[in-house]
Amino acid sequence: MKASPARPSTAAQPTVVTGPAGRRQPVAAGPPWYDDVASATDATTVGPKGSACTLSVTFSVPAEWRVEAVRSGAEFTLGPAVPVCEIDAKPAGHIGFLRVWQITGATPLNPQDTVDRYLAAFDGPKEQQHRRTRAGPLDAFEATWTEDGERKRAIVVSTRKGELMITLGGLDTEEFEAMLPAYQSAKSSANLPT
């Protein structure tokens, strides 16, 4: 049975979040950022050595989600992004994925270029918005857009081994909203491996 869509927490919400370099920025409730959606309960850690996907960033997702390395990622490159890990929501009753992409290229891209080149591979994404934010303690760059009327999300972090991007996409807006707590969990728990 499919779980109901994510609902904003009814607990008192802060009016600010901490942005890059500790700067405070407003919480954006509801679409397109959904900052008021609480993180899912962390359970499975993605990224450490010996896990299904060894990455230059670690983060947590709900236990029911299935984590698999993408073995032939170069075949599915979008702009500078090569998929390296796929986290499937189907075992949790949703139709959609969190995907992790390694950013490639001869010269380092700034996060805005990364997102713009990735989105250029799609057929006319709309309603694009960008912002600097945090992924756990890490400076990050986040984007939201619609594709064929469906909301999508991406966050880019820089590591010693280059940039990684985590994206969220679902079958439709209802599925996207239902999976947002897992995305928020990945975002809030992101860190460099120890």
Rank of each mutant, 00 (worst) to 15 (best):
S56A: 15
V57H: 01
V57A: 11
T58F: 00
T58C: 01
F59G: 09
F59P: 07
S60P: 00
V61S: 02
P62G: 08
A63V: 09
W65I: 03
W65M: 07
E68A: 14
E68W: 00
E68C: 01
E68V: 09
A69Q: 10
A69P: 02
R71Q: 08
R71E: 08
E75P: 00
E75S: 12
F76G: 02
F76P: 00
L78K: 14
G79I: 06
P80G: 06
V82N: 09
P83W: 04
P83D: 04
V84G: 07
I87H: 01
D88M: 07
D88R: 10
A89S: 14
A89L: 05
K90C: 03
G93Q: 12
H94D: 09
H94S: 07
I95N: 07
G96F: 02
R99S: 04
V100F: 03
G105H: 05
T107F: 08
T107V: 13
L109W: 01
Q112K: 15
Q112Y: 12
D113I: 01
Y118V: 02
L119W: 10
A120S: 14
A120P: 05
A121R: 04
A121K: 07
A121T: 09
A121S: 15
D123Q: 14
P125N: 12
K126Q: 15
K126E: 15
E127T: 13
R132T: 11
T133W: 02
T133P: 00
P137F: 12
L138D: 05
F141H: 14
F141V: 10
E142N: 07
T144I: 13
T146N: 15
T146A: 13
G149H: 08
G149E: 11
E150C: 03
R151D: 09
R153D: 01
A154D: 12
A154P: 05
V157Q: 11
V157S: 09
S158G: 15
T159E: 08
T159P: 04
K161G: 00
K161N: 11
G162C: 07
E163N: 12
L164V: 10
I166A: 03
L168I: 05
G169V: 03
G170D: 07
G170Q: 05
D172S: 08
T173Q: 10
E174N: 12
F176A: 06
M179E: 06
L180T: 06
